[in-house]
Design a protein around this nucleic acid. Structure first.
Lengths: 337, 337
DNA sequence: TTGTATGCGTTATCAA
DNA sequence: TTGATAACGCATACAA
């Protein structure tokens, strides 16, 4: 397969390479017939303009990056679906990057793409409590960026989030109304962006109903299924909560596993509510009461907002916050006995 | 933020741009001290070599594309996880493209990236019965490609697949051994790559046990949850199968929904087995008997194989087929009454 | 070890 | 409407 570029095409067609180049431009002064002729010929050769050469001439990469902490999570995969739909509809490709909750990877990736690899970035951050000042060195005019779900409060970028505080409050209140008085809060990192916000909702709901806070009921979990099952089993065996509020989907699953193993029945012995984007929550045994974040919608919103910045219509100086509402779907796992 | 390139850096440091360029190369003749000096200075400027310029100079894009028919599927998202791990470990980025089961999108994407946008492609195809000759125009030496799961038999590319025929046979046999005599096969497209292979396994298992084939029991479903629930409800109401073999995860969920609605109990009235990558299949009500494809492993294998081609160590002329084994995990949904 | 010169494939500017 | 030519930012062959 011999090399084919605009020059070889130009030669074959007895034109100049400028003319050939123009044929691939959308609005360019060119005779429609010559354009057709060029495109036809190019088609037979299966020619496509070299992406990187065009790029270098100051064009766009037509690619946006999505940075997420993990992929093994319905929430993020649904986000990506939403992003993908909008991206594709607008002629953009999607580059995925997973930080594995490692700030260094996040930093390495973002800086490495900051010189032209992508036109914009959607990011759910990972280093909330850490030093993420690397972002100060990024030129957001050149590569706009929008946060979603997990954000850096001290970086003035637009963000799409959900009403985490209210949802948590509601979820906790729901458990209380279902009769719980000893509600455990399962979290991966209480200090982190969402873990923190959700904790506050939990705390304030308890306060409202005059239920004393108990540190033993705020349980730090990990990212490992095995560890979590042990942690949660211990919680159930020794602290005997009558309700569990899982701030992350995965922790609800671990709770189910632990209960199965221990012979604890949900919701009779223990009621469970969880943040979860699992679409078949109603098929679980028992059906799981969930706080559903509008994940796909978030992805779409985030992508749309990013696009407005990328097309230069955004106001970089006035970052906005878009809050989408999660919804509590009550199912059997939290049913009043 | 003023423009920074190797020239400006060279000027500032009183060096030539070649030297500066070399500082960013890994194995280049350069004094370690000058290199350090350059890198330090670059760091303060947050400079990164322009990706597209390097690219055009004949380098690699350090990106591989993953083409999948859909994203709303545990199988494909797990594949992507596997790919991502291997890609990252080798310094590559991952570009995702979803064809929505539309051959035109597949074709458009693959041809559009075929001129340098990515270094390699992993693809699960979508146009099995259609004209996919566009691939003949792709230079696989320049952009290696590996198929996974859904493949074009007539295109000589390496592929990672699972033992679909055997698994289907086993699944069907399992239902028979559990007492089923009227087993329905749910499929999206019986003519398609995997739908076809899985059908054959189903068919041959029936034959082995002298169970007559019945066209009414081979049910064509769609990609819509609503449609499928209707289709499956009709099947259950009018044909009364005692076993269902879902060739795609989604169809098992629809079966569960339909049964819930109709008051049909699994496994007493109807036993269910499904191809599924759902990790919490055991938490369903009832726990779902699954044929589990090693999705993440497939992703890893496929990426590794692709990398060998990309690094030029592969034998393009001798495409290989790697077959990974799925496993049948028997759970309550297919339990003998 | 460093510098000089050239070219990668395109697009934009200007002139024809 | 088309053609000639100069960038774009970098990496390599070659010379020093």
């Amino acid at each position: 397969m011999t090399k084919v570029d605009i020059i070889s095409i130009a030669k074959a067609l007895n034109l100049s390479k400028s003319t050939v180049s123009r044929a691939f431009q959308d609005n360019s002064d060119i005779n429609p017939q010559t354009k057709e002729r060029i495109l036809n010929y190019a088609r037979t050769l299966n020619y496509r303009p070299n992406h990187y050469a065009s790029q270098m001439r100051g064009q766009r990469s037509n690619t946006i990056a999505v940075v997420v902490p993990e992929l093994a999570n319905n929430f993020f995969t649904q986000i990506i679906q939403g992003v993908e739909v909008v991206a594709k509809a607008n002629g953009y490709h999607v580059l995925i990057f997973v930080t594995d909750d490692d700030l260094n990877k996040e930093k390495e990736f973002v800086t490495s793409i900051s010189n032209g690899k992508v036109d914009g970035v959607l990011m759910s951050v990972t280093g909330e409590g850490q030093d993420h000042s690397y972002l100060a060195g990024i030129d957001f005019k050149k590569m706009p960026m929008v946060f979603f779900d997990r954000v850096y409060d001290d970086i003035p970028l637009s963000r799409i989030v959900t009403n985490d505080y209210q949802s948590s409050f509601l979820a906790t209140e729901h458990l209380i109304q279902m009769g719980c008085v000893k509600i455990a809060y399962l979290v991966v990192n209480k200090e982190e962006s969402i873990g923190k916000t959700r904790y506050l909702g939990y705390r304030d709901a308890l306060l409202k109903y005059d239920i004393a806070l108990d540190d033993k009921l705020v349980v730090n979990c990990t990212n490992s299924y095995e560890d979590n099952e042990v942690i949660i089993s211990d919680l159930i065996k020794h602290i005997h909560p009558d309700g569990i509020f899982a701030s992350v989907e995965r922790l609800a699953f671990s709770t189910y596993y632990a209960c199965n193993r221990l012979g604890v029945s949900i919701p009779q012995d223990l009621k469970v509510v969880a943040f979860s984007s699992l679409q078949i929550a109603s098929l679980l045994s028992p059906p799981l009461t969930t706080i559903v974040q509008p994940a796909e919608e978030m992805g779409r919103e985030a992508a749309s907002l990013l696009l407005t910045y990328m097309e230069g219509n955004g106001l970089y100086n006035a970052p906005q916050e878009v809050v989408l509402n999660s919804s509590l779907v009550a199912r059997v796992s939290s049913l009043k006995s």
